[in-house]
Design a protein around this nucleic acid. Structure first.
Lengths: 213, 213
DNA sequence: GCACGCAACCTTGCATGCAAGACGTAGGCT
DNA sequence: AGCCTACGTCTTGCATGCAAGGTTGCGTGC
């Protein structure tokens, strides 16, 4: 293990534990203690404690004083909540992208090149790569709005959505063309500077996702 | 100081420091070290460190390793960003409140009684109490949606909005009636189950706020 | 006067030690 | 048998110590 701490221990612990939760290795309801993670990673309790605090604020862990931490189970309506927020935030972002004359062209360029990437992965049937490009597509729109708070929120949502996907495995290969078409149409809305149409289409697009979950 | 730690030290430090930032006692750009807060509150560095980490994830502080923490200044567009997110989240919440048959009546009752409180404070000219009722009004809508993620995000926005208000002091007493009328109309939209009208009105309502900032 | 380097000071990151709260259990008492 | 208490163990909360990285300012050489 010549693993030089190129990054802080607390950060490593945070990512490690979050990954365990998101991937489902630590199922919801499981009680874990700081000590168990210490043993896993060979660090002291301090960085583990910090990581746990962070996961607590992200509502992935529920800390309870002197008793331990329980992995928060996914609420029954979690998928709905997450998608609803995604829709709200991305819709607002699209509005802003449409309103801002200056940044719109660059954003459109980025989206169009992302569409090409998506098309490539769809044709190759590479589901995992497609999902990644899919996420990047939507993230691009949010970040293009320039609203940093939106970007921050969206990142938090992404973690939860990933967790959902690991559990309720979704997206069948035959849905890829539909998704891709949706994305093309979304870009079309931005080109026409029609934020309302973007919102409507996004709602339908997200609803399709929900069906899959 | 018989101040028994009825609440954890880390929590006290968190609130204390966040309050300093929100109230503007610690202006944006100020460099602070953990030690200075330790001296203020008479605790060791550990809980202060934890509080700083939390403020860092909330983007109120920017930690930089072994250099200290700087109070993040408000971005020039911060007001716009915050209000835009408020609008997006509350709009989605209103949609859900309208859609849910069961919970709507109870929500409407709570909103109507809140309106009465607002009217009382407006008549008495108690600006501070009115602002508090105002915040509770909107929070009620968001929480009524039952979307916990929305509630979480909204709480984060509230901190930032409070900070903005402390800096760009807003809301003139003569605006109270207009705000109150807006709130009444918003409730009216929910009664008519018209989420789109709610959104439109909310946009205008928030825009008025923005003018004040 | 100016550039460079070194040293003292300041900061945080993390390990460790100790104390206190929460549970589970065994033992004694009724 | 049933209940209640006391203890042992597990957990975290926080204080403290140490090490390492960063910054500043002074002294030296030019």
């Amino acid at each position: 293990m010549s693993d030089k701490p190129t990054t802080h221990a607390a950060e490593r612990v945070y990512r490690y534990t979050k990954d365990l939760i998101i991937r489902g290795a630590l199922p919801g309801g499981r009680l874990i203690s700081e000590g168990s993670i210490c043993d896993d990673l060979g660090v002291s309790r301090t960085p583990v404690h910090e990581a746990f605090l962070r996961l607590d604020t992200e509502r992935l862990l529920a800390l309870s004083s002197r008793k331990g931490a329980v992995v928060l189970p996914m609420a029954p309506q979690e998928a709905r909540d997450v998608l609803e927020m995604r829709e709200a935030i991305e819709g607002a972002a699209a509005q802003r992208v449409v309103d801002e004359e200056r940044t719109a062209p660059a954003t459109l360029d980025r989206l169009r090149s992302n569409l090409a990437v998506q098309a490539g992965h769809a044709a190759a049937g590479d589901l995992e790569a497609f999902v990644e490009a899919d996420e990047e597509f939507h993230r691009t729109v949010v970040e293009a709005s320039g609203n940093e708070i939106a970007g921050h929120f969206y990142a938090l949502l992404r973690d939860r959505q990933q967790r959902l996907r690991h559990h309720l495995l979704a997206i069948r290969p035959d849905e890829l063309p539909v998704i891709l078409t949706d994305h093309r149409d979304l870009v079309g809305c931005l080109e026409r500077r029609d934020a309302d149409a973007y919102r409507d289409l996004l709602r339908a697009h997200v609803a399709r996702n929900r069906g899959a979950l």
